[in-house]
Simulated scan of single mutants.
Amino acid sequence: MTAWTFFNDDWHEGNPLIMGPMHHAPWLASCVFDGARAFEGVAPDLDRHCQRLVNSAISFGLNPTKNAKEIEQLARDGIARFDKSAALYIRPMFWANDGFVDVDPDSTQFSVSVYDAAIPEPTGMSLILSKFRRPSYDFAPTDAKAACHYPNSARAMREAKARGYENAVMLDALGHVSELATANIFYARNAEVFTPVPNGTFLNGITRQRVIGLLRDEGIKVHEHSVCFNDLLEADEVFSTGNWAKVAPITRLEDRDFQPGPMYQKARDLYWAYAHRTQN
């Protein structure tokens, strides 16, 4: 892997030391981040990812030391260090160095890392229904994309892998489908698309929002509503959206097999066309 990180006003190759054992972030989990993609010479919605990072930092009581436009420019400087055709992951972060339980906002630090990471091939993903659930805003800072949420995702992923699957559907406290351990989820029936309505238990993903808008612009009905697990089992097709794999088909859900369907293919094709049309 080739990686470049901007930290303390300079670019560093590899995996530079950016925090230590006495800092707040590794001790008390004050790190927020975002993830964007560059591929095939484009970086779709990079500006929105940078703005979401700033919003996450504010949610955590941090003092964002750079605004979204400054973060975007640094990210583009990092992208320029790679071949134009490279598939890259772009990960800006804010965190606190000091504070006790709550953060000291004046100690806020910033970095942005850009590194090569292939987009997974859309060969299909297998899912279980996890026993672990997503918290709501009154239980956790679910309005931020933050490192502290990922141990919960990790145990759902471990549960899935122990059963021979790749990922997991996670419910909210009321038993409705929230999202996957690592992505947002959609299903289709009778040429209409359905996805869980944002209810404070998951991030309203940037790729999710983009795909919904693109499908609706094509005249396809997209319904955001409460989803039960049986709705997924009875679907014609299921697919996911997220920054890591963008738009990907689900081919197995517990004991039910699926084929990549026309709504998945339409969503993926529309997203790729959008990415190249905007030349972000």
Rank of each mutant, 00 (worst) to 15 (best):
P26R: 07
L28D: 12
A183S: 13
F202K: 03
K246E: 15
A57S: 03
R216T: 14
P64I: 00
L171W: 01
G205H: 09
V101A: 15
A96Q: 10
G200E: 01
W11P: 04
Q109F: 06
E159A: 08
E254R: 06
A248F: 14
P64E: 04
L171I: 00
V197F: 01
F94S: 00
F239Y: 09
D77E: 15
N230V: 09
A162I: 08
T182R: 01
S85Q: 15
F239R: 06
D98F: 14
G219E: 07
D77H: 06
S56M: 01
W272Y: 11
V193A: 05
N199M: 01
Y115G: 01
P151A: 13
E13I: 07
D47C: 06
F7I: 11
R216G: 11
R155L: 15
A36L: 10
Y89C: 07
L214T: 08
V54C: 02
E121L: 14
P120D: 13
R158N: 13
K66V: 00
G124A: 12
N243C: 12
H149L: 12
F110A: 04
R81M: 10
D102P: 15
N243I: 10
F39I: 02
P198S: 03
M157G: 06
G61I: 06
E237L: 02
A248D: 11
A235G: 09
H225V: 07
I90M: 01
L253T: 08
K84I: 09
S178I: 04
A173T: 08
T251N: 14
H225S: 07
K84A: 11
G78H: 00
C228D: 10
P198F: 05
F94G: 02
D77M: 09
R48Y: 08
V54R: 00
Q51I: 08
A96G: 13
A80N: 14
I90K: 03
Q265K: 07
K145G: 01
Y274V: 06
Q279K: 15
N152M: 13
L270N: 11
G175I: 01
S30K: 08
D172R: 00
F258S: 05
R256Y: 06
L62K: 00
Q109M: 14
D217F: 05
V169T: 02
